[in-house]
Design a protein around this nucleic acid. Structure first.
Length: 645
RNA sequence: GCCGGUAUAGCUCAGCUGGUAGAGCACCUGAUUUGUAAUCAGGGGGUCGGGGGUUCAAGUCCCUCUGCCGGCACCA
């Protein structure tokens, strides 16, 4: 007999050889129908795989995250089967589950086209209709390699050869005539796969993710528990496209990009206003947190970059400048760190000067590969909100803590409260002694925990020069963006010979903390645009108020009103065009201006304004003075509002 | 950089199997003075991304370069 404990704590007994399917059946018919797989002592089991001994058993259905992954995994298998039935000259490789769906990498001479999708999807549905039982088999490694080689699946044979330790058995899943190497688990039959999948896009991908290997054809698909979820997902994609910062950048007249300046931004007035507002805000934060702003050169001699070590490592990605007849080669700075060390090194530093926090809105240029460029998110010319904290080892903890606090405040002010921290510790290849690493890792870890944010541990993923924290924020539609970072560095101060005089009168090496909160202004603005979908909160909005007239009789008063609003510090514009008020309201609403102040003859006579806020149809009639005060309060940046309280 | 796709007016797009360009919006001009998401009428605007080829004839077919898009690789 086998004793089974269910998730609610109840216990049941089954015959030897019983499977999770039997467990489900014994509970209810509907559960037996909905069952896709089971979690046995935390491990995923096929529904028909016999239970070996007493166990905790939880039946997995499409409602569980595990169930959804199962569905996606099976969708990948069904896709592979469909493709191989339709295009026998195709070899399969791998097909994992990803966010919202799955992909499968195929090797085939002839390129697939998205026009093939309809045919493939139809075939996939046929496979579901045929309801092939999915059967798990255990093969020996050699047997598996031989079988896959025999049918011309060289990639599969190679995977088995590389990842399965010799002597270990492997599992193969069969559905109809088709079979694939797979750890499992799987649905009991192809008929259990909900017809709520869709092929999405086609892309190239290197075999095993290595650019030296041949390129495979990757088919992306999405799969859900039911059609409703699928539809909802497709709708979410549409919504995300609507808030694409490149589209909004054009529509809201924020910026543009053009061929002659690839990866560089032409900021238009409104976009630049947004940029400046953000920069002013960051500057105030830095001052408040004891940073000293500096500015360093953009072109420096190549020998300087050789010393810093960047020439060797990043030469390919650096812009170079040389002048005829001069032998000097200058490089445009790709980062600010070495320059900040120069400022630190200038003159003598004492332990009393530490921690020294040097900040720069550093303009950097990197020759990013063509294929990497993407709107504001990945550019070749960008500005970091960069700073380097020079400190003693025993100051690291406090500095990292203070930084985390500052970062949380900034993100929260900018509308991001959903943040996670990634903590990466020592990699195998590194500089610095283990004792120093111990201390630095401890400091970062403690600070990360103190933020109260979710901490993800990334063992061995630190830089060779020190451990780091990375900050990831989630935007309004759930996408994640890695933005902030703080990294301890034991290497560069050594390389560029930074030192301070300690209490003992001897020279010591400072530790350098590299840190950024936004990362780059360009990218962060891209994230902000998409997060707010262009409808910025009042304090960030490039245009905060538009005074719009109803008839030309109100023009004079409108001028007076806009002057008053500007005097109150508001970014106010006037619209006296000879157009209907409907037209003006529509246009400024499309421009997502937070407040439209409508003025007609009535308002002119009474010295009032009729305020209409973005996203609402109502109006609020206020005296001009009162409106100026109220709106200016609303437009106050959050940090200044805090200071006033 | 690699794979695939794509490039027509400022924007969004149409232009079938080759027969020398079209719509809506935007823009300009005029009329209209209007009460909260598009007033009406008229007008201007494109060497169809660059170069080469096939053809009597190329926006349309072929080659090539470049940009852009979707991924992959890269991201100090």
């Amino acid at each position: 007999m086998i004793n089974v404990t269910l998730p609610d704590g109840s216990k049941r007994q089954y015959e030897d050889g019983a499977s999770p399917a039997d467990v489900a059946k014994s509970i209810s018919n509907s559960l037996a129908k909905a069952a896709l797989a089971a979690k046995v002592n935390g491990e995923m089991y096929d529904l028909n795989r016999p239970l070996e001994h007493d166990a905790d058993v939880a039946i997995v259905t499409a409602k569980d995250q595990d169930g959804l992954e199962l569905i996606r995994h099976d969708a990948a298998h069904v896709l592979a089967q469909a493709v191989q039935e339709l295009y026998p000259d195709t070899q399969v490789t791998i097909g994992p589950v990803i966010d919202d769906g799955f992909y499968y990498d195929f090797a085939r001479e002839v390129p697939f086209s998205t026009e093939d999708f309809e045919r493939i999807e139809k075939k996939m549905e046929e496979i579901v209709d045929k309801d092939y039982p999915i059967i798990r088999e255990v093969w020996s490694k050699d047997e598996a390699i031989e079988t896959f080689k025999k049918i011309g699946e060289d990639y599969k044979a190679q995977i088995i050869d590389d990842i399965i330790p010799p002597g270990d058995p492997i599992t193969v899943y069969k559905q109809g005539d088709w079979f694939d190497l797979c750890r499992g688990p799987h649905l009991p039959s192809t008929g259990k796969l909900p017809k709520a999948f869709k092929l999405m896009k086609l892309a190239g991908a290197y075999w095993r993710g290595d650019h030296r290997n041949e390129m495979l054809q990757r088919m992306y698909g999405t799969a859900w528990a039911n059609e409703k979820d699928l539809k909802a997902h497709l709708l979410r994609i549409e919504e995300a496209e609507k808030r694409d910062h490149r589209k909004l950048g054009r529509e809201l007249e924020l910026f543009h990009l053009q061929d002659e300046a690839q990866g560089q931004v032409f900021w238009h007035h409104k976009g630049w206003t947004l940029y400046r507002v953000l920069q002013d805000y960051m500057r105030r934060q830095q001052i408040e947190n004891g940073y000293r702003e500096i500015r360093t050169p953009e072109l420096m001699d190549r020998t300087f970059w050789e010393r810093s070590g960047h020439w060797d490592k990043y030469r390919e990605n650096m812009f170079i400048s040389s002048i005829d007849e001069e032998e000097k080669v200058l490089a445009v700075k790709p980062m600010n760190c070495p320059c900040h060390v120069q400022v630190f090194n200038h003159g003598q530093k004492s332990y009393r000067d530490l921690p020294l926090r040097l900040a720069e809105f550093g303009s950097c240029h990197r020759y990013e590969p063509h294929g990497a460029l993407h709107g504001l998110m990945r550019v070749r010319a960008f500005t970091q909100d960069d700073a380097h904290i020079f400190c003693r080892e025993d100051q690291i903890t406090d500095e990292v803590k203070a930084f985390c606090d500052m970062l949380r405040t900034v993100y929260s002010d900018l509308g991001f409260d959903d943040v996670v921290v990634k903590f990466s510790d020592r990699p195998e290849v590194r500089v610095g002694s283990d004792e120093v690493w111990d201390r630095a890792e401890n400091a970062l870890r403690t600070a990360a925990d103190a933020t109260g944010l979710e901490v993800i541990h990334n063992p061995g993923d630190g830089a060779f020069y020190g451990p780091k924290l990375d900050f990831i924020l989630r935007d309004a539609i759930g996408r994640e963006w890695q933005t902030g970072t703080i990294q301890a560095d034991f290497n560069l101060p050594e390389r560029l010979d930074a030192s301070y005089v300690g209490e003992d009168g001897e020279k010591h090496r400072p530790v350098m903390l590299h840190r950024a909160i936004l990362g780059s202004f360009e990218r962060f603005l891209g994230i902000l645009i998409e997060n707010y979908s262009g409808a910025f909160p009042m304090w960030l909005a490039p245009t905060q108020v538009v005074v719009a007239t109803i008839t030309s009789e109100a023009d004079e008063y409108a001028k007076k009103a806009v002057e008053r609003l500007r005097a109150a510090g508001l970014r106010a514009e006037i619209d006296t065009r000879n157009e209907k008020i409907n037209y003006k309201v529509r246009e400024h609403s499309l421009q997502k201006v937070p407040v439209i102040a409508v003025v007609g003859q009535r308002e002119a006579e009474e010295t009032t304004v009729a305020l209409r806020r973005f996203g609402s149809k109502g109006q609020e009639v206020l005296g001009l003075e009162e409106a100026a005060g109220k709106l200016s309060d609303e437009a106050t940046p959050p940090d200044m509002a805090r200071a006033r309280r």
